[in-house]
Structures are given as C-alpha cells and as structure tokens.
Design a binder for these strands. Structure first.
Lengths: 203, 203
DNA sequence: ATCCGACTGGAATTGACATTCCAATCGCCG
DNA sequence: CGGCGATTGGAATGTCAATTCCAGTCGGAT
C-alpha cells in the first residue's frame, strides 16, 4: 500500500526518486507497455517490494512518471517558457526544441505526448493527469501571447487561447512526424507555420 | 509460416480480411500492447492457427493492420483528398475530420498516428511502414497545394512540400490534444491555423 | 478420382510479468 | 532503551500471452 497518505521519510525519498527516474527513462525509450517492473527493478537497482511499496501498482508508477515528466519538461523550458512574449522568444523556443531532437537523433518524440498517445484510451486516471499536464504546459504559452496582445504587439483579433493550443498541437504533431521520419524538418516547418500565423496578427 | 510468398486462395481471403479488420478495430481502441492474440481470435471468430498461418507472428499482424489502416483512411478521404486544391476544399477536409471525431466522442485519435506513437521506437519494420504511410497521406495534400501555386492562387514563395508536412502534423497534433481533452477545439484551431497560414500566401 | 498444399481446430508449451507474502532491518521518537 | 512504522530482500504465486505442434479437412488442379 502506498500512494495516498504514504509517509515517505528522508531515507526513502532517494529510492523513490531513483525508481521514478529509471521508469521515466525506460518508458520514454520503450513505451509504457514495453517497460516491465523487472526492467525498472534492474535499472533502478531496487527490489520489487520497493516499487510496490512506493507506488502501489504499475498504474501508480505510471502516474508518478507522468508527474515527473511534466515537471522536468517545464523545469527545463522554464526560462524561455516564462517569457514567451515576443517572436524572438517563440523562435528561440522552437530552435531549442529542434536542437534537443537533433541531440537524440530524433528518437523518442515528446516525453509527455508519447505517454499520452499510449495511455489516453486505456487509463482514465492517467488521462486526467495528462489533461492537467498539457494545461500546465499551455498556460505559459497563452500568457506570453496575451502579454503581446496587451502590449499592442498583436491585434485584438488574436486569441491567445486558440493560438496557444495550436502551438502546443504543432509541437506534438511536429514531434510525431519528426520521430517517425528521423528528421527535424517536420517539427521545424510545423512550428514555424504556427509562428507565422501568429505573426499575421502583428500590428 | 506466411507473409512472403504466401499463397492466399479465394477461400482464405475472407478469413484473412476478417482477422485484419478485427485486429485493426481492437488496436485502434486499446492500442497494440493492449490487444492480445486471444482478443483478436475472439473478435474475429478464428483459431490461433489461422492468425499465425496468415501473419507469421504478432508483428506481421501489426504490419498488416498498418497497411489496412492507411488504405482505409486514404480510401475514405479519397474524393476530397484528391482535389485538395482550394481553400474551400481544405476547410471541408478539416470539417470532415472534426465531424468524424465528434461522431466517436473524440476517442481514439488518428488511426495511423496512434499506431505510430506506440510503434516507432519499438518496431523498426513497423516504423518503415509508417514512414511510407505518412508519405502516401502527405502526397495528395502537397499535390493539391502545388496545383494552387501553378494556377497562381498561391505565390511562388509558398512551398507545397513544407505546407503539406505542416498540415499533416497539425492534424496529428490536433488529434492528440482532441483525444486527450475530449474536445474538437484543439483539432479545429490547429488545422485552421495552418490553413490561415497557407492563405497568407494567397495572391 | 486423387493428390498436394492451403486451411482449420484445439491442445500443449514456454516464458514473462504483475503482484503478493513473509521475514528481516533500520532509524527516529519518546 | 524500546517500539513502531518505514523500508528492504527475495522467493512464491497465479495468470495470461505468444507461439508451436499435431492432426485433420477442404478444394482445385492433373
């Protein structure tokens, strides 16, 4: 038994973290279905008991991985994501994403999107988590665009909410095609298309 | 064993088709990992031998499902996809996709994209098939845009290849978010953004 | 009519995986 | 010091999936 009010002491936290990190890595590389508990055990250097102690069951572990991945993603993009209020910033964000893909030879896709595609239809709880995760990711994009509009850099016609959603979807779709084709071109052209669409609202 | 030069007679073809169709349906609903051979057996009303007779192993079945899904998708969209050479046609295509999603309560996402996300990193052969599938899907989009440019409806700056890729990615990303949020809004705003981007090249 | 390969049924095999259990430590709190 | 819960190890359990085997049947070609 674990999840709800499970007391995790300072002694257990490193272990828990090690498990989540190992699981996140494996699930990113091989998918949730392709990652077994024994796989995680070996990668994290723990026994089965520990995994079940901290996460209850595999679904609990998956949910912890989702939480970890969205936190890690937002953390990594934080500086630029919090100031996504200019075309230069949008382009830098795009270029950072492209560079990240190149660094891993376009393998793996999006840390969140991949989990999403695999879990949406099979794990309702995970889907809830993913909805929240995407909302958290979309928020700063929307905020940045709203700031641009307030400043008068975008016309009043521009809808920050819709544009932010389109931006996020462009990243997801671009990453999927990039992952399949092993080329950053799809990601580049798609995100650029949306940036240019936003630019059409520039004053 | 089966796949390569397997002779499939007129007696076996219905069985084979039934298996592929059942497997495609199940894998669309529950994912490849969530679909077992016994599941397919029951849904198709066949014995294990028949599945292994026609497809060799589960990977073979998966590849057959990919082939079936891309054929079915192109078939279903054929009329509009072959004349995607006006803004009206693009909008009708988008609206058709939205209607299809609404009809299924935004569940399931893209028949091809879902398979793609689950298989890219774990099945190299399937990935090849998916590359080919997306290429076949992208081609008519590109052709339509090229026709618009030839006619002078789009400026010479417009690159049909890039725009077609962005369009496809917009659909994929839009569908993923639509599937997660159970709302057609993401699909609508994303595809619309790309259409509007294309319109910015209108003469 | 017969013959060969496609086709089918169903049981058997093998292995892996999620999960449970029990018995041991370990460290803080009083 | 004593205890209690957090933590850990490692084996055991039970299920289920992928795949194989072994016969049988069927239909078209010779």
């Amino acid at each position: 038994m674990a999840q709800p009010g499970r007391e995790v002491t300072s002694r257990g936290r490193p272990t828990r973290d090690r498990i989540v990190r190992a699981a996140a890595e494996l699930m990113f590389q091989k998918g949730v279905g392709g990652t077994s508990i024994p796989d995680v055990q070996e990668a994290a250097g723990v026994s089965a008991s520990q995994i079940y102690h901290y996460f209850g069951d595999k679904q609990g572990l998956v949910r912890a991985v989702i939480a970890h991945q969205i936190d890690a993603t937002l953390e990594k993009q934080r500086p630029v994501l919090d100031s996504l209020d200019s075309f230069e910033a949008l382009e830098m964000w795009r270029d950072g994403a492209i560079a990240a893909q190149e660094a891993r030879d376009c393998a793996g896709g999006c840390e969140i999107g991949s989990l999403a595609g695999e879990l949406v239809e099979t794990d309702p709880l995970a889907r809830e988590d993913l909805v929240a995760a995407f909302n958290r990711w979309e928020a700063p994009i929307r905020t940045g665009l709203a700031r641009m509009r307030e400043r008068g850099e975008l016309s009043a016609d521009a809808d920050p909410a819709s544009l932010a959603t389109a931006m996020l979807a462009a990243v997801q779709g671009g990453l999927l095609l990039t992952q399949i084709r092993r080329s950053t071109v799809p990601l580049y052209v798609t995100v650029t298309a949306v940036i240019e669409h936003i630019r059409s609202f520039a004053t």
